[in-house]
Simulated assay, not measured.
Amino acid sequence: MRNLILAAVIMASLSACSTMTPARYSPSADNQVALRSISDGAAHVVQIVSSADYSASCRMAGPIQASDGMTIPQFVQKAINDELKMAGIYSEQRNPLSGEITKIAFSSTAGLTNGWWNIALTLKGSSGQSVSAEVTYNFKSGFDAMTACNQTAQALGPAVQDLIKQLVSDPRFTDLIRSN
């Protein structure tokens, strides 16, 4: 009987875990305006790595992972390349960029029903130039774990949009994709 109860508790615990994933990244109108204002520039992001510790666990409800089986760095890399493609300034022949996520964290319990993502990224060109940005994106999460963690996962896309907006609005980004 004791083993049966233990097995039931283990099964209930395992069935409660769920992986939360955001929707696929969608380019931002603000980012498109900023990128389309860059004349004679083109680039592509070859790779983004992360030197930051990332804890994907959300309220014991399960992990938060990027969509389509990607890692968070791959999600950010694809997002930047998608923005460049939509703006017509993506080129695999010019200006290969690499990036490093130096900070990534989230909370689904700020003020009990709010949350935030904090992401910092540095992009570097082959010439040694770089541009960095950091964003804290705040959102409503929810009270119960499943709602809050799903809201946290869905907030990753807008957080990355804001991060990219900071990057592409920096004059150093324009120099980066024109000079490599």
Rank of each mutant, 00 (worst) to 15 (best):
E83Q: 10
I101W: 00
E92H: 14
M70K: 13
I48N: 01
E83P: 08
L121A: 05
S98T: 15
V33W: 04
K103D: 14
F106Q: 02
Q65H: 10
N114P: 00
L97D: 12
S107F: 00
A43N: 01
I89V: 08
N81V: 09
A110E: 15
N31V: 06
I101Y: 01
S108G: 11
A120T: 08
P63E: 07
M70Q: 14
T113H: 03
E92L: 15
F106A: 01
Q93V: 10
A52R: 06
C58G: 07
L121E: 02
M60H: 04
S55D: 15
P73Q: 05
A66D: 04
N95D: 13
S51A: 15
T71W: 00
A120H: 06
D82I: 10
D68F: 09
N31K: 05
R94E: 14
S37Y: 08
A56Q: 12
S55C: 13
A110G: 09
R59V: 02
A87K: 01
G41E: 03
L35D: 06
D68P: 10
S50F: 04
A52C: 07
R59Y: 06
Q77R: 13
D53A: 10
G69H: 03
A105C: 11
L97P: 11
Q74W: 11
S39T: 10
S39W: 00
Q47W: 00
I101L: 11
V76D: 01
K103P: 09
G41H: 04
G111H: 00
A105Q: 15
V45L: 06
N95P: 10
